[in-house]
Design a protein around this nucleic acid. Structure first.
Lengths: 119, 119
DNA sequence: ATTATAATTGAATAGTTGTTCATATATGAT
DNA sequence: ATCATATATGAACAACTATTCAATTATAAT
């Protein structure tokens, strides 16, 4: 039981009251992980560009590749990540796959993010 | 001039009209980078925990270290990143440094993020 | 001055991530 | 069936990141 004392704070100066209050209001690990994961996906310029583009129009992989001047493979890899986190949805029409935004949260997330970043 | 044709889309099936419309509405590279950078900072569980904690109370490094059961060094490194992106601010009182949220965007960003992640 | 401690910092390391390249799958046309 | 093409996928590699460890700075107490 005496393990893991050294790597944590020596705790001469913990504000116990405040820490307890914070601890009681902390979200479960799982929720934190989910939130961080969502932001992580939004934390890449290529994916931001893709999502930003899809705010304006539904596009196929080739369109996005052309728009961003990047290989279709690179775009496709990123689209998979966006699909897995349910940020985009797609529909197939023959060989062509059309991507669009999965819901309307992205618009407000971008707005909030820019509000912070640009202030 | 014939360079960089192979790595981009062979472009048999670009929806020119849509792509042009999207292109005209795209934000400048710099803005995209700023936005992605902000989200990237939010995309780590440790930093999410720190920010979430600071929603409830102002805390010193030692408090956070104790709360999250992580070394002060690790916390301090993360706080630097949060400072650099102006997500937290701090005040010094003797040896102790108190951290708090820099503004109120974080609360709404977390709310929007959770709304998406938990749906 | 010396000692103790809260916080910061730099270097090192293990783990993760984005892109490329080569290949595979799926659909449409001949 | 064969060929062309839109997209997807797996492996590999370089670049980046979070934590640890050791050392440093800054403040307070003796």
């Amino acid at each position: 039981m005496a393990a893991k004392t050294k790597d944590t704070c020596t705790v001469q100066f913990v504000h116990k009251e405040a820490v307890d209050r914070v601890r009681s209001r902390m979200k479960p690990e799982e929720t934190i992980a989910l939130l961080a994961e969502t932001f992580k996906v939004l934390g890449d310029p290529t994916r931001v560009k893709i999502l930003y583009a899809l705010l304006t129009a539904e596009l196929c992989v080739c369109d996005i590749s052309n728009l961003l001047q990047m290989s279709e493979s690179a775009i496709s890899h990123q689209l998979r990540i966006l699909r897995n986190t349910r940020l985009v949805k797609y529909r197939k029409e023959g060989r062509i796959v059309y991507y669009s935004l999965a819901d309307d949260h992205i618009r407000s997330l971008f707005k909030q993010g820019l509000d912070h970043a640009e202030e």
